[in-house]
Amino acid sequence: MDVLTGEPLALDLVNTRARTSSGAEYDALARADDCNAWLSAQSGRLTVPEAPLAAADLPAIRQLRGHVEVALAAVRDADPPPIKAVAAINEAMRAAPPYACLEAAGAVLKRGRKRDGTPLTRLLAELAEAATALLTDPDVGKVRGCEAPHCRMLFLPAHPRRRWCSPDLCGNRVRVARYHQRHKTT
């Protein structure tokens, strides 16, 4: 199953847990191959580790996702996020803090940004930073859940009338179901 991407990175992380159209649970972070495919899909806005992640790396990513999900649910409800979730997100950022560096490309110098740490700690730090950006964004209260049955995806609507995570997937399923309901022969 392909996981939808294109929302803020922290929402894409939370949306790695999905439901199929039949209502079955799917977790893109349950298997290393699926996780690496998701990371590849995020390569434009996330520093993908040089080597594929191993199955042993997945529990840490799933744990961070859980903390982000809990904190996001609290913030969306205008409740204080659990201290444990905030601490876990902060710890992930602290494990591989970014630093400025000077990069040379021939005679041209430019300012860059790097992180020390293992590929996993660097990845977790980037995901935690994305979560921090979303959780502190004034628009975080606008995050919605898809209205399609069996869908658990979250999205930040660009338009206030948006109701589905994807108009092509969930939106189309709802419209087709409504059509069949209206034209059902008895």
Rank of each mutant, 00 (worst) to 15 (best):
R161G: 15
A37Y: 12
L39F: 09
K114C: 08
A73G: 11
A130T: 04
P98Y: 03
K110H: 13
G44A: 01
V176G: 12
E103W: 03
G112M: 02
L134C: 01
R122E: 06
L9I: 03
A56C: 09
R122Q: 01
L169K: 13
R163H: 08
F155M: 01
D139M: 13
R178G: 13
A105V: 15
G171W: 02
C151Y: 03
H180K: 13
I83L: 11
A128T: 01
T47R: 12
R65P: 05
L64T: 11
P149E: 14
T5M: 08
R65L: 06
T186C: 11
V48C: 04
Y26H: 13
S43T: 10
E126Q: 10
V70E: 15
L11G: 07
D116R: 02
T20V: 04
H159T: 15
S22H: 13
D34Q: 06
M153C: 10
L13A: 05
R162A: 10
W38I: 09
I83S: 14
A177D: 12
D137Q: 00
A41R: 00
P98A: 07
A87D: 07
Q181C: 07
H159P: 11
V108G: 14
P157R: 00
D168H: 12
I89C: 12
H180D: 09
G117E: 06
I89Q: 00
R144K: 14
H150K: 03
A41G: 11
V3Q: 15
L135C: 06
Q63F: 09
A28P: 07
R182V: 03
D116E: 13
M93A: 04
C101I: 04
A100E: 09
L9H: 08
V3A: 15
A88P: 04
D57I: 00
N172W: 07
A71N: 13
T132I: 06
R31G: 14
R163I: 03
W38D: 03
P81S: 05
A96H: 09
D12E: 06
P52H: 12
G23D: 02
A28N: 08
G66M: 08
R76V: 05
T121R: 02
P80E: 14
D79L: 09
I83D: 15
A30C: 02
E50R: 10
Q42L: 03
R152Q: 02
S40C: 08
W164T: 01
A177P: 07
N90D: 11
G6T: 05
R161V: 14
L72S: 02
N172K: 10
E103C: 11
E91H: 11
R94Y: 09
E7V: 05
K84I: 12
D2G: 15
E50G: 12
N90P: 07
L53K: 04
C35A: 12
R111G: 13
V14M: 00
A130H: 05
W164D: 10
V75D: 01
C146L: 00
V70P: 14
D34H: 07
D12H: 02
R111H: 15
T121E: 13
P49E: 05
L135F: 06
G106K: 02
R175W: 07
R175V: 09
P157F: 05
W164I: 05
P8F: 05
R178A: 14
P52C: 00
I83F: 15
L4P: 08
E103I: 10
M93D: 01
P160I: 01
N172V: 15
V68C: 12
P98S: 04
